[in-house]
Simulated assay, not measured.
Amino acid sequence: MRKLNPFLLFIAFVSCNEKDSSKNSESGNILENLTYSVDTIVMDSGEELFNLSGMIHMASQLPNLVYLFDEKQSKIQKIDLDKRALVSTFQFEKEGPNGTGTYLSNFQSLSQDRFLIVSDEAQGIFNAEGNKELDLRLSNFSDPETEAEQGIQLPFEMQISGNGNFAYAIVGDFFEGNWNFVRINLQSKSLKTWDMPELLNSKKFTIMLKGSDSFDLRAEDIHLNKLNEKIAVTAGNTSSVYKYDPASDSLYSVGFPHELTAKEKTGTYPLEVTSKKEYSEIVSEIRSEITYDTFIWDSSREKFFRLGNKRIRDSKKSEVFLYAYDSELNLIGEQKIEGLERPPSHYFFKDGKLYSYVNVEDELGFAVFTFDF
């Protein structure tokens, strides 16, 4: 057992707002009596090294596998959580016809060691040998309703459907706050686009530092979420989501009756400042409001879960919340995770436990949370 990051050291077993179990059934909140414990595991990289700043993705086909994308070296490392070791490395080119590009947006593991890779320069499916099998630039597809190509629009994120027949993307602009959902039919080479006007509010929490000698940008996270066969689009400033149903080929907004935390951010902030001090103060104020994260599926419980967090003012600590949803995405539980002072990072469920990336003495590790409720 290796030493864990300081923020998790003190957590061995914490009871979270213990109450009478009869009240749990009456309230309908399955997380009413939430307790948890946490342990840590470390991955063996063998003769290689892990770039701990890389992007982590869990394989949807095999829950024991995770992938680490090292953008600096354009390689993907396959890690077996059961073996706790690196098992394969896939090398790619950064430039050229098979290049993966720079500024990675997201990647997704597919069957037979194939990967969807999305960056500023490249959007496509690559095989284990590093060759691009399918170019997914939106300019390759047309919209039958307008009979026009999509021009130079860049997807912020993309996902491939389970059957491999469709790709989904979100396209937009943090500065303007306009976001669109795109469904791409890979067989007919066509696409369809939906507006998402309720995400316009995310622009209110985009702040730009534009000083004479400095530039920075803070914006709400926008993400695609795989909900088994469905897709959801989430924004950090709101609990509401856009949900896409492939059976009806429809996109619609879904809200949740949260009581423990606000349903969305509500503050008013300037969009641009020139002072580093003012920028830091405003960012801190925004972070003190609730931020909702993405949905993850726990196959052992057949439920979705989601985390939320609020930064405590004038502190590096946060309040962290856990939310539970049934398979149809109905809210069925919410609870503060007492004792946890920083939100988990790059998290996913495996065997009913929440795995979260941690740096363990400069080695790749995971904090493993066991939730009981």
Rank of each mutant, 00 (worst) to 15 (best):
M1Q: 13
R2E: 14
R2G: 14
P6V: 12
P6Q: 15
F10I: 07
F10M: 12
V14S: 11
V14N: 09
D20E: 11
S25G: 08
S27T: 11
N29I: 12
L31V: 10
E32K: 14
Y36C: 01
V38H: 00
D39R: 13
M43P: 00
M43N: 09
G46E: 10
G46W: 04
G46N: 07
E48G: 03
F50A: 10
N51A: 08
G54K: 10
A59N: 06
Y67Q: 12
Y67C: 05
F69C: 05
E71D: 12
E71H: 03
K72I: 13
K72F: 05
K75H: 12
I76Q: 09
K78T: 08
I79N: 06
D80C: 12
K83S: 11
K83H: 06
L86V: 04
S88K: 07
S88W: 01
F90W: 08
F92P: 03
K94Q: 14
L104M: 14
S105V: 04
S105E: 11
S111R: 05
Q112P: 01
L116E: 03
S119D: 02
D120R: 12
E121R: 08
G124C: 08
N140F: 01
D143I: 05
A148S: 09
A148D: 10
A148C: 13
E149H: 13
G151I: 14
G151T: 10
G151Q: 13
E157F: 06
M158E: 06
S161N: 04
I170E: 02
V171W: 03
F175N: 14
E176S: 15
F181C: 08
I184D: 03
L186N: 02
K189N: 12
K189D: 09
S190N: 15
D195V: 02
K203R: 15
K204D: 05
K204E: 07
L209C: 04
L209P: 01
S212D: 15
S212R: 12
F215G: 06
I222K: 03
H223R: 14
K226S: 03
I231K: 07
I231P: 01
T234D: 03
N237I: 00
N237V: 00
S239E: 00
S239C: 03
S239A: 12
S240L: 04
V241E: 04
K243T: 10
K243V: 15
K243E: 08
Y244V: 09
A247H: 13
D249V: 08
Y252D: 05
V254W: 01
G255W: 01
H258G: 01
H258L: 09
K263E: 12
T266M: 03
G267A: 08
V273M: 08
V273R: 00
T274Y: 05
S275N: 09
E281K: 11
V283Q: 03
V283G: 14
E285G: 11
I290W: 00
I290D: 00
I296R: 02
W297L: 11
D298R: 06
S299F: 07
S299T: 10
R301L: 15
R301E: 10
N309A: 13
R311T: 02
D314M: 10
K316D: 05
S318E: 14
S318A: 15
S318W: 06
E319K: 15
V320Y: 01
Y323E: 06
S327M: 06
E328C: 03
L331P: 00
E334A: 06
P343S: 10
S345M: 08
L354N: 05
Y355P: 01
N359P: 02
N359Q: 11
V360S: 15
E361C: 15
E361D: 15
E361I: 13
